[in-house]
Write a protein that binds this DNA or RNA. Structure first.
Lengths: 339, 339
DNA sequence: CCACACTCTGACACCGGTGTCATAATGTGG
DNA sequence: CCACATTATGACACCGGTGTCAGAGTGTGG
């Protein structure tokens, strides 16, 4: 019963004394096959350590039980450090896939290069999940191309008007509102914002809008001067905050568009001998693992990554199955810690 | 020239006015095909947005240009937080795969459940990378089974004597030596160790051994009492350190088996009003991204994840190609920060 | 002009499954 | 006992490529 190479369904058929067709049916528990034959086949298959050849199976059925994840990195980020928020997402997406019986192909994309978005074209994956902040070079036109090719995909991130793709995202606007309400409650109305309030990054923009609008509802106008641009890295947050301080701009609260930015901001504040939270309260966004490790522990707006991963996967699967799917907005959550 | 469904090589053949065989050859730039035909075929293929069907191709060639990554989680860790060190590894492995033209299938394994290690059996992947700390339930016997099946795989982690698998690992023993040398240099010889010095986690054990041996070379014996067990989480490090303090155990330096443990330890020290690094110097292990964010920034032993990822992938590929491969030991690196 | 090498192309089997169709075996009612 | 439904099985085409082999077409030397 020893073999060279992997066993095929023909081997099983031979040893079980049935035809290969029957083996195939038996292994997939088709009701067409007799209970006893089924048992016999399963038994032989187990003994030979037989596994269905996915390539053959996929080829025939024209589907792969595999999803592809394209992770877009912040172009300026150094290559060994990946945004921890996306890593959390990756974890939950993997798990969600596994739960649905799908495998996951992971690819990190440098947005500068050509996308490696041909997983579906080449029948490697049934659908694609796009993960990344911001609006990359040619993002729109590339999405358009995916749509034209009738590729099944879902995006993580802000729903942009006029972009007809299916998205799952955190309610960034609502998160901004939560942050504002929290600071107002603590009478900190002289606020700085570190992030990017332009349209480059729709997520950051929405967070800022929700933040600003809430203040305005309380008849407080945020000063344009107290804003600094930053991308989602610790370093960028540090330098942006540093430049505010250097320009002698004062504030008693700071809202950062992401936790990494917030962590960098806190470093800059502490270096300038500004006490957190006594002098300046800080609120971040994402609730990355490190947020609870830094000291003082970061107050932040949590995105529910577990749920997000599940929604991305289940929306994508529904799309693949041809069901009607709507873009999904997930509620954020204020986590009050020590800043 | 508009099609329903995806184009096949027959479609290309039809439009290019050649046979399907020639299309296949032309697309793979076989020297057998005439330059002009080659160009023509490529042109038509591009126009039809043709992509080779990987399933068909893999089925025929019996290889998948895909590697699988099995990530074993610390069983006690809450599901949304994954050890950041492994996430860094994941990033570098992805990149290394891409560079070699391989795709990567990612799977998170709960070690309690059955391994999902049949990627090779089912021809989904040409080889497997195993990533995880420690010696899990049935780890040995499962590896044995992989070996018997002649599955190609490499492991990250300590080389355990008598385990005939191919590994890539950081020189954990050497890292422990570095940590010890650093502390001795600063005259901190009254050291605590937080981790697991038993054999449960061979990586942690090797780190401790290198640490201890270096002290002994300086005629200093580490007190068994100043050790506490912890798994690689912030929380575990916190509680372990807390219990040392509660037992009135004093020390002026602390070596943590991982950065997460170190970060938890620092929190416990600070809560007990013990100053870091003035009262207690702390050295971690891994150099996870958060290590540089926490304050004071963590002094730690760096593992070169970029190189590690590359070595895992290239060793595995060599193994697949049937070349002779040796287990690889990577040199660690002391990163001095503020603890 | 023929033998032979060389270049390029097409026909065809093949990879290992899945789905369809035909059919053998058995049971059931009239 | 025959007509017919029901159940279980095998034969076979098929998915879309790749590799082998045979042969057409052209060139070169004797």
């Amino acid at each position: 019963m020893k073999h060279k190479g992997k066993a095929t369904s023909f081997d099983i058929a031979h040893y079980a004394g049935v035809s290969q067709s029957t083996v195939s049916r038996a292994l997939r528990n088709s009701p067409l096959v007799n209970e006893e034959t089924r048992r016999k086949v399963h038994e032989v298959a187990a003994k030979l350590n037989y596994k269905v050849d996915k390539n053959a199976s996929n080829l025939r059925t024209q589907q792969s039980s595999t999803l592809a994840l394209l992770l877009f990195e912040d172009p300026t980020t150094d290559e060994s450090k990946i945004n921890p928020f996306f890593l959390s997402m990756l974890g939950s997406i993997t798990r969600a896939c596994a739960k649905e019986g799908y495998d996951l192909l992971v690819s990190f994309q440098s947005s500068s290069q050509d996308w490696r978005a041909d997983y579906e074209d080449s029948h490697r994956a049934d659908g694609i999940i796009l993960l990344g902040y911001g609006d990359y070079l040619d993002y729109q036109s590339r999405l358009q191309k995916l749509l034209e090719q009738d590729t099944k995909f879902v995006c993580w991130g802000a729903k942009v008007d006029g972009r007809p793709d299916l998205t799952v995202s955190c309610d960034n606007y609502g998160g901004g509102q939560l942050a504002a309400a929290h600071l107002i409650e603590h009478k900190r109305t002289d606020c700085a914002f570190i992030g990017d309030a332009s349209h480059h990054c729709p997520e950051f923009f929405a967070r800022y809008q929700g933040f600003k609008d809430t203040f305005e509802k309380h008849n407080i106008t945020l000063s344009e001067r107290k804003m600094a641009n930053a991308i989602s890295t610790e370093d960028s947050g540090y330098h942006a905050t540093k430049s505010l301080i250097a320009n002698n701009i004062r504030f008693n609260a700071l809202f950062a568009a992401s936790d990494l930015i917030a962590i960098g901001a806190i470093r800059a504040l502490q270096e300038a001998n500004i006490k957190v939270p006594n002098d300046v309260r800080v609120v971040g966004f994402d609730n990355i693992p490190a947020a609870s490790y830094v000291s003082p522990a970061l107050t932040t707006i949590q995105q529910n990554t577990t749920l997000a991963g599940q929604m991305l996967v289940s929306n994508l699967l529904n799309l693949i199955r041809g069901e009607k799917v709507e873009s999904t907005l997930l509620p954020p959550n204020l986590i009050v810690r020590n800043t």
